[in-house]
Nucleic acid binder design. Structure first.
Lengths: 258, 258
DNA sequence: ACAAAAAAGTGATCTGGATCACATCTTTTC
DNA sequence: GAAAAGATGTGATCCAGATCACTTTTTTGT
């Protein structure tokens, strides 16, 4: 069974719950429902690799692809969840509202499942997820996901691997954000984007200054000043939205020493 | 097969690697090796509940109990890991060294597995774990743990549940630590101890001021001053190491507003 | 029981980065 | 293509909490 699109994307939930603005109505119209063939999928996850033909069939029958454009919400914090999202391609930010402002908890590039913990915590999204560029998502119903975990220990094992990886990253990030000052944190973020997201020292900055601030626990103005310092010291080159890391070693030292 | 104690506890690793100080030698002598009977265990984990008799047998044969006293290390960051630790009773802090000082990432009360991510990340502990009071630990070899995950999907499922729970907690903590100021963070820590660790508004503070600082991202002196403020405002009563929360509502407000 | 070592408390000072209040530059929108 | 909206840059000011340099209290070891 394929879900109908209006169960899948966040905007469509507004459909039943709230008055339909013109914008929302447009968004829904534009969402294409893609039938999935998980077995032949070019973007198969590590976890899906261990599933047998029969299990992939189960997945395919409860899975549906949707395309999101930059700035479109995939999950919205506090709204009923729409299953587990598998990021097939694109780039996504995971964010949550705090007492004084928004915070970016994670930047996720494919292949990666998102929303696994949400499914556990009840019916409501624990955080928002927004596309940073055109992103292909496969939604998998949480029941199916759970069923596959119970059915195939190797699938669960792979999921455990990624959750554990995440946990170690949070520990690392938590310590960095708490004990380094802003230069170190911004340097770390630039290196993270170059090395872990884009695999390239030149990249198109996917976050604006405010977002970058929300990511490194700082305010817009401070990020601006830090970036300008880095540019003046010839650690980076900025041209429009393109950033090039020109002195990686020095940047790494700044990131390390805080 | 039962492991010999000297493979299990952190101190014993010093045995082979470093000169044996009198203190370390004493510690080793005092460690009692407990044969485990997982099937009859009074402290069975949620995950172990789903194992059948045969699987519990496997666990029992690769599992060994050790008692740690307050301040004894269970894991030491950077040292080879000694399997997964199951906290049967007691209380434990999980901590990691940062660029400028130590940080407490988590306070763990039973029942809980610790060290699952470490096992993945190679042979070396990614963080330290220290007993805050007398603590009973069962060490389970990582191979056995993995084997049980592969063997029984329900076991893996339970592990996934706890890992997901943790992830949501980290998100929450990360936002709180970043966006609240010290009064809010200390208030939050006191409520956390009362509500999630001791289930009691009166409790024996298991952390000294420096540790409490490492837990709430603040320095010793600031924690002292905050605690004295709270006492002067009659939100808490302090007598020796015993803390009583006397105005929970006001404390909760402070925690919420930051 | 006493010396030594930790832990806790206290006041004075300093500072990183938040905050405010704008100016400028860029992107949408109609 | 002009006007509105949004993103970025800049200087001035302020303050929470770190840091320092002690004293006092408590715990530990012998």
């Amino acid at each position: 069974m394929i879900w109908i699109t209006s169960f899948l994307c966040d905007e469509s939930q507004s459909f039943s719950t709230f008055a339909i603005t013109k914008k929302v109505a447009n968004t829904i119209k534009m969402k294409q429902l893609e039938k999935t063939n998980c077995e032949a999928c070019r973007f198969k996850s590590c976890a899906a690799e261990v599933l047998d033909s029969n299990e992939l069939q189960i997945m395919a029958q409860n899975c549906s692809g949707v395309v999101f454009k930059r700035h479109e919400r995939i999950f919205r914090e506090g709204r009923p969840h729409s299953g587990i999202a598998y990021v097939k391609s694109g780039l996504v930010k995971l964010h949550k509202t705090g007492p004084s402002h928004e915070q970016i908890l994670k930047i996720i590039r494919p292949p990666q499942y998102i929303g696994i913990p949400t499914v556990l915590a009840g019916k409501v999204n624990q955080y928002s997820v927004t596309a940073l560029e055109t992103t292909h998502i496969c939604f998998i119903s949480s029941d199916t996901f759970r069923r596959l975990i119970l059915l195939n220990g190797r699938f669960g094992n792979e999921i455990i691997n990624t959750l554990c990886q995440d946990e170690l990253e949070y520990f690392h990030r938590s310590i960095n954000q708490a004990q380094k000052q802003i230069h170190g944190r911004v340097a770390g973020a630039l290196l993270f984007l170059a090395e872990h997201i884009f695999d390239n020292d030149t990249f198109n900055m996917p976050l604006n200054r405010t977002d970058l601030g929300d990511f490194v626990h700082a305010r817009r103005e401070s990020v601006t000043r830090t970036l300008i310092n880095f540019r003046n010291d010839n650690l980076i080159a900025v041209s429009g939205h393109t950033i090039t890391i020109t002195d990686k070693e020095k940047l790494r030292t700044i990131s390390k020493l805080g």
